[in-house]
Computed example of a mutant assay.
Amino acid sequence: MSRTHEVPTTAPNQIARPPLGQILALEELDRDLFLGHSYNDSAFRIYGGQAVGQALVASGRTVSPDRRVHSLHSHFLHPGNPKAPVIYHVDRVRDGGSFTTRNVRATQDGLTIFQLTASYQRRESGLSHQSVETTATPPEELPDFEDSLSPDELRGARPWLDVLRRNIAIEFRFPEEYPRVANARGEARPPCQRAWVRTSEVLDEDPVVQAAGFGYVSDLFLLSSALPPHGITIDEPGLQLASLDHSVWLHSEFRADEWHLYEQEGLWMGGGRGLARGHLFDRAGTLVATTMQEGLLRLRR
Rank of each mutant, 00 (worst) to 15 (best):
Ser2His: 14
Thr4Trp: 09
Thr9Asp: 09
Thr9Ala: 14
Ala11Arg: 12
Asn13Ala: 13
Gln14Ala: 15
Leu20Trp: 08
Ala25Phe: 03
Asp32Leu: 14
His37Cys: 00
Ser38His: 11
Asn40Cys: 11
Ala43Met: 04
Ile46Asp: 04
Tyr47Ala: 07
Gly49Val: 06
Ala51Lys: 09
Gly53Glu: 02
Gly53Phe: 02
Gln54Thr: 09
Val57Gly: 05
Asp66Tyr: 07
Arg67Thr: 02
Arg68Phe: 05
Ser71Phe: 06
Ser74Asn: 12
Phe76Leu: 11
Phe76Lys: 10
Leu77Gly: 08
Pro79Cys: 12
Pro79Gly: 14
Gly80Asp: 07
Asp91Trp: 02
Val93His: 02
Thr101Ala: 15
Arg105His: 15
Arg105Phe: 15
Leu111Met: 15
Ile113Asp: 05
Thr117Gln: 14
Arg123Lys: 00
Glu124Met: 00
Thr134Ser: 15
Pro139Phe: 13
Glu140Lys: 14
Glu140Trp: 12
Leu161Asn: 03
Arg165Trp: 13
Arg166Thr: 11
Asn167Pro: 08
Ile168Asn: 10
Ile168Leu: 13
Arg173Met: 10
Val181Ala: 06
Val181Asn: 06
Arg189Phe: 04
Cys192Lys: 15
Arg194Met: 03
Trp196Cys: 13
Trp196Glu: 10
Val197Glu: 03
Val202Cys: 12
Pro207Glu: 05
Val209Gly: 06
Gln210Ile: 07
Gly213Val: 09
Tyr216Leu: 06
Val217Thr: 13
Val217Trp: 01
Phe221Ala: 03
Leu222Ala: 03
Leu222Lys: 04
Pro228Val: 04
Gly231Leu: 04
Ile232Glu: 00
Asp235Ser: 14
Ala242Arg: 12
Leu244Thr: 07
His246Gln: 03
Ser247Ile: 01
Leu250Phe: 15
His251Ser: 05
His251Thr: 04
Ser252Ile: 00
Glu253Met: 06
Glu253Gly: 12
Phe254Cys: 03
Glu258His: 00
Trp259Asp: 00
His260Pro: 01
Glu263Lys: 12
Glu265Asp: 13
Leu267Ser: 12
Trp268Arg: 15
Met269Trp: 02
Gly271Lys: 10
Gly274Phe: 05
Ala276Met: 03
Ala289Trp: 05
Met292Ile: 00
Gln293Leu: 03
Glu294His: 04
Glu294Pro: 01
Gly295Ala: 06
Leu299Thr: 11
Leu299Asp: 07
Leu299Tyr: 11
Arg300Thr: 04
